[in-house]
Write a protein that binds this DNA or RNA. Sequence first.
DNA 1: CGGTATATGTTTCAAGGGTCAACAAAGCTC
DNA 2: GAGCTTTGTTGACCCTTGAAACATATACCG
Lengths: 400, 400
Amino acid sequence: MTLPAPLRPLSAGVGNSNDQARRHNLSTILTMLHHGGAQTRAQLTRLSGLNRSTIGALVTELVELGLAYETEPADSGLVGRPSPVVHAAENVVALTVNPDVDAITIGLVGLGGVLHKRVRYETASVPSVRETINVVSAVIDGMRSELASSYRVVGMGVAVPGLVNQVDGLVLLAPHLDWSNEPLAETVEAALGYPVSVANDAALATVAESLFGAGRGVSDLVYLNGSASGIGGGALVGGTMLRGAQGFAAELGHTMVNSSGIRCHCGKYGCLETEVNLGRLLDVLGLGAVGLDELDALVVGSQAPDVRAEVNRQLDVLAVAIGNFISIFNPESFILGGFLGSLYEADPERLRAAVKRVTFNVVGNSVRIDRAELRSRLLTIGAAELVFGGLLTDPAGTSF
Amino acid sequence: MTLPAPLRPLSAGVGNSNDQARRHNLSTILTMLHHGGAQTRAQLTRLSGLNRSTIGALVTELVELGLAYETEPADSGLVGRPSPVVHAAENVVALTVNPDVDAITIGLVGLGGVLHKRVRYETASVPSVRETINVVSAVIDGMRSELASSYRVVGMGVAVPGLVNQVDGLVLLAPHLDWSNEPLAETVEAALGYPVSVANDAALATVAESLFGAGRGVSDLVYLNGSASGIGGGALVGGTMLRGAQGFAAELGHTMVNSSGIRCHCGKYGCLETEVNLGRLLDVLGLGAVGLDELDALVVGSQAPDVRAEVNRQLDVLAVAIGNFISIFNPESFILGGFLGSLYEADPERLRAAVKRVTFNVVGNSVRIDRAELRSRLLTIGAAELVFGGLLTDPAGTSF
DNA sequence: CGGTATATGTTTCAAGGGTCAACAAAGCTC
DNA sequence: GAGCTTTGTTGACCCTTGAAACATATACCG
């Protein structure tokens, strides 16, 4: 019998509980630096509630571990001895990979969420796992000497549009990439030699927006992303990601919103994803594949009646889905990314009003609806967070 | 700025970190006894991973606090020194109240989930808050001497069918009781003198089923309850209850399942609650108000075509909702209570098959659908858990 | 410009908790 | 009854945090 997390005592297994306390506090400080940015030791002391001496010891240890560094105090203009500024070490980095139908994006992100580098490699066709590995391998080879001299690579995070079991890195199904039952973490790890973590792209986007985007400081939010490959989502519940028993939770695009709707590629009828759909939007616009920024201008700006009608239809359907999610999650904030952000921007008031019609007043009136902030950096930042997770949990225990 | 829970360091605020560790471990042991039943010290040692000496110290402290007691070792038949059995103190109790449209149920529950007493007081009409307090007050007065001599009352838990903010005990809206904006915790506390906690009834039912019912040992589950007053639900996510930003999450009865459905009393159209409905079931059965047990026999046993047709219709609609919830939560287990349990029992295979049609295979095939186990004890046990929560979190710090 | 107040880093020490090892106790096995 | 096995008990030890005293660096004020 394994105890569930909340029942696990301090010092379960090996080591004494003092170790646990130390680990926890070390983790707290590094996390504060990574998510909250550089801060003075005095600020860390106040925010953490820990003692001055303890903060001193913890910061010293983080510096020795190469995970933080201190700089001269900034001129604060306040009385008292100046407090040195503590930074998370930006040269501690995560490699990130985001395979998509038409391109593979590789990134290098440092602690603190700094985007050091990003390469977008366009592919002729939908990439297979092998092709993806080859591309990534080639790109990394090109950076090899720089990686060795200037950075410390913690690991690699992969954001996959599909059903992923985050624990073992198995991609069960990624319909748009035509991948299924791929032991991705294992394969990539064997090929490239870095520790690899894999997760669903929308889940990672949710994490990224909640830490560095429109959801900063919010502990209950729902994120909904619209792309050419459909609608994905994620939910932050009480500050932690909703994962579900097998890690397949928050498949928000495949919830029913129209009982007389058409058949979705998943086999069901009236899914949110088939009703609110980029393809149908492009159809009325008379366009083929198009970049999200370009689309945004077209959708937001268009006065053509048939475009407005389709936008309105999609907004109304979207409102029903949002209403359901609000009833289910009672989030503080609702964030829309991808073309859903454009839809929202086209008529925010229509969406807000429609959502209010389908929620209890108290709940519906208090939820904030926002557009996602991190555009192209979204998945890169999110995938890095996946890698940093382990380091942040146990800064002293992770060797790399 | 308040730090979110995962960022809070050990020993935030006052006290040193050893205190925190001690508190946590004490909490762990008491929780193990309360939820897992009486166990030997040796078992506690193995399950917790803590040291023999530590367990000894912790148990001694719990005994001194009057929260546990030890009994002679049972004849195990094994070699080695016999280990004394540690029990949670059953005389440490929670008072529980469950106001409903036609009755008020008052209970007395001991640590370990022992139901010591239960009184059901039938009311002539839907009780107001004042009437509820009067009834509860009278019942408690009748037990006063016994309470004082044999029990230690930790507090009172109230399960309310409606929107409740668990943090401040404000009942925002309980449509079937016709309560709104009632500062219930405050009022009851002032009238009766016990510390009072209030929560949504379905949320408490979820907790109860997950700890002592069909959801034992499961950390991701969704519970759906059907009663005369509609459909309520709760979700356990990674071992913790889904609450939402204001505590109004999991209003599962008011999610849309039929876009051409009829108007719900909440103002929306096609809510699960209006489509899957006890009233419509009673109509085809030609009955008025009826007990759940009686209904169960009728629904499960009936061969009448119109009854079967309505049961099937409701099952199919229910399946759509369950499918949505499965896509959203990816739970390990789905639990149906109240008349939804009867519906399920009437044709489990139809429901299972219908659910499979509206979920991804991997997800839909692995989810267990069960009927709730705790029938009439459900809310009493759940409301007690609400009271015990504080005690379990900090056994040494709670004075009562 | 120098003294004072304020805030913060640094050092040392005490308090508290958990582990470990040694020993004692209590039952089973032969 | 001797030996084995398991578990409770006790005291030494280590670790971490907090508190206090001291050191340091800045602003403020006359």
